[in-house]
Amino acid sequence: MPEDALRIEDLVKRYPTGVEALRGVSLDIAPGELFALLGPNGAGKSTLIHCTTGLAQPTAGSIRVFGHDAIDDYGKARQAVGLAPQELNLDWFLTVEETLDYHAGYFGMPKRERRERTKELLETFSLTEKRDERTRTLSGGMKRRLILARAVMHRPRLLILDEPTAGVDVELRLELWHYVQRINQEGTTILLTTHYLEEAEQLCDRIAFINDGQIVGEGTSSELAGRYGVANLEDAYLALVGRNELSRSKIEVVS
């Protein structure tokens, strides 16, 4: 039986301030899955992602990426992960091309392969004309493209997308989703967080709800809706956060 792409067991993250961002999270994502993690702001989504990628240190529990422990065997675990973070965390000193080249270098990719892969991704993400521009001069949409290109640059087997379409226009959002679906079909496992529920519903095989540092529901969108006794994923989400009164089914249409 193949190793899970991501296996998280009883993960606890307590910050020095005493805030417990994750309170015993367990999660399994199979290889090749497109998995969505949904929850309100502050629920623990980004903390879970940071613990998986080494940006935060778990207080307790374990994380395994394709069988490699994220703490004891961090080199192999991180090699398998690509992260497109929520923040536009680009280095202002670097050009678009350098951003991709350096990232691949950090992951040990040889020079010739880096050059070919950079060229390919610049074209894929319509960044070729911007290749020599410093990242701080890019528009928000261009930065978002570059962050996704950087995340896939070293060909990770698990791609983590933390709200990748926040603040982007419709055209770019659709472009990004087409790309994500394509690489998923080619075998890349994807963990996605988003606030666009209809996208999670359409794109993802399985969805988990996280709230107050705990996984409170997991399954397909219809399974989740059934669990909360509502018609769709959005209503299930509203039930989760205790805001049923916002359900569209309860809005009266005035003619």
């Binding site: 080494g54 940006l55 961090y74 080199g75 992260l83 202002w92």
Partner: peptide, 17 residues
């Protein structure tokens, strides 16, 4: 500067020891 920009995350999430 890299901490401010968050850009240091790229090195920190790499396999570098």
């Amino acid at each position: 500067q890299q901490k401010f920009q968050g850009a240091i995350q790229d090195q920190l999430s790499s396999p570098a020891s």
